[in-house]
Design a protein around this nucleic acid. Structure first.
Lengths: 191, 191, 191, 191
DNA sequence: AATGAATGAGGGTTCATTCAT
DNA sequence: TATGAATGAACCCTCATTCAT
């Protein structure tokens, strides 16, 4: 098999393993078995477990692209973005579990914490920028604090990845996201 | 040393270990070293690692009592409650980390998931009840969806426990909580 | 409790433990529990596990007194002796099991091997003496080899202590003993 | 090294360990040392101690084949069989010790007791059949009780495996076996 | 490119034993 | 006399990793 393909196979096996058994439950032997190769082959492609985890993390980043739509009013862009994220979390349990595992692992892996922190910063900045733009354009209530709103959104999405909260309440979480947006977009005059 | 005292010491050592290295990074030998006893002593007090973890979990439940104040207007009660929770998470890093570890562990421990799920249900019900009461009493905007609001709060608090988000942004998180409350309590007429 | 009584209690508990779980399955904690005392008390009365085992061995010697009747013809004495031994083994399972355990332990305990060897030698000598006397007195067939006969008896009795052979076949073993004696005592002329 | 060879090596090391230190004295580390490998290698070939013991038991069954000769008169067949067995026990101390250990272990291992019991039953049945045939063919004294004789033989051989009896008296045991056979085959008329 | 064989380090647990009271 | 508390040593087993092929 082509070198890159086999590498991908093993990476996907690791990703699935992380989602299923967690980071610390990840065993090189299990990854090898899932990929249908010998354990030494895993070490042939990935020098160490850490390397394999790094590859799985890159796969996660590829899979979880929460992009802000480029076009539309701030309201439309925010709605599409947030509903897109929550729907992804609701529908892709493997991805959700992997996200939670990775996020938690940052507590013991400073380098990972740095990477995740940077991604968070970027996301927060995007959200703040969008909110500010909406404020400027008069899309929503002027009192909104962009930084606070951004943190609310990110914290909520992270909390939604936790094992117990979302699985039984997808409808409530969608409603919560919509309500959050509606708060922003409600014309004070209408209330 | 008195039996109960030594037991508590070891339990606290386990709790600290969980907060620092995570659940699966918890080593009986490390707990023993932290408590200043031999590893066999840990097994003298706790028959198994599982027993020790159960004791550490009970300690966590004792430490994290997020009670709803009994007196005051719904607005006052909600504010005190939510600010109390977020301040606890901000100030007690050990508790926050342990909470995150426990929450994540639920992914692989059905019994723990059941317990946490039940605690979540209770918290959500309390929040919904309080919001409904506020609606009835005209404390805030009638359009608020109690269930969605409750889920927003719980998800946000859970997200705030994650390793990367809160530590560098305590002020933003407090502001986010306050803004959430203010949304509820803002008299539409004022906007 | 009087010192001697408590010692006996613990010794009996050890004996029962050996019969039930075997020598290597003997645990000081189990002995203490069976005797209803603290494990440290066992060490108070017996300095070490080895000492306790020695006491249990002495108890075994007291319980298993296979004495040769003093009176009667050689035939009568031999019959009474051998049937007495086999009946003891059949009826007292605890004793039989303890005997087997002790005998086996001799393989790893030279001092015990010496003691058991001495007891065996004495028994063999008694048996040979009795057979020789019978031969002299014309009680049975002259061709009998006293040493071979004695070894046959002792080996057979030891084999009867093994866990699997006797329990289901007490009648066969009694018959075997009787046939052995009858071979000796059958007057050639009668055959 | 080839997989099967190393497996055999480790199995033989375990067998020798059982013969030397007994079943419960068997240590994975000792087996590894005797085989000249790391302890993890033992677990690489045998998933658990139990598996290794099972392999050692199979080796014992292979080594101890006490087959009844197919040809000859009943007398000849019985003699060859019994002298073969006793000579094996006399000359192969390791096998004898392992047999004793296995037999004793049956006291605490019901499944092993079942297997050994079945092997005993088969042996006893063979012996009874041979004796009955001899009786029918007039090879020996008609009064002989086949079941009692068979039990005598088996108990004796088991007793001969015990640590203390045989080692110092191989000649007596051979003589005992021969005498047992001679009793059967002695023509009453000759006595 | 891929693997079977082998290992060092470290994991939870058990046990006889000690010691202060 | 008797014990609860504490321990060092040892046990079985697992894991990521290495290496010759």
């Amino acid at each position: 098999m082509a070198r890159a393909d086999r590498r991908d196979e093993i990476t996907r096996a690791a990703f699935a393993g992380i989602a299923e058994k967690g980071f610390e439950g990840l065993r090189m032997r299990d990854v090898a078995a899932r990929a249908g190769v010998n354990i030494a082959t895993v070490h042939y492609y990935f020098g160490s477990k850490e390397d394999l985890i790094a590859a799985a993390y890159r796969l996660l980043q590829d899979r979880f692209k929460a992009e802000l739509p480029a076009d539309g009013t701030p309201d439309e862009r925010l709605s599409a973005h947030l509903l897109g994220v929550i729907d992804t979390l609701i529908s892709d349990a493997e991805l959700r579990r992997a996200l939670a595992e990775i996020a938690q692992r940052a507590a013991r892996d400073p380098e990972l914490a740095r990477q995740i922190g940077a991604a968070e910063d970027a996301w927060l900045a995007e959200l703040r920028g969008l909110v500010r733009q909406g404020v400027r354009e008069g899309s929503w209530a002027v009192e909104v604090d962009p930084a606070a709103f951004a943190v609310t959104v990110v914290a909520m999405m992270k909390g939604a990845c936790m094992p117990t909260l979302l699985p039984g309440r997808p409808a409530e979480l969608r409603a919560a996201v919509r309500q959050l947006i509606s708060w922003l977009t409600t014309d004070p005059g209408e209330r």
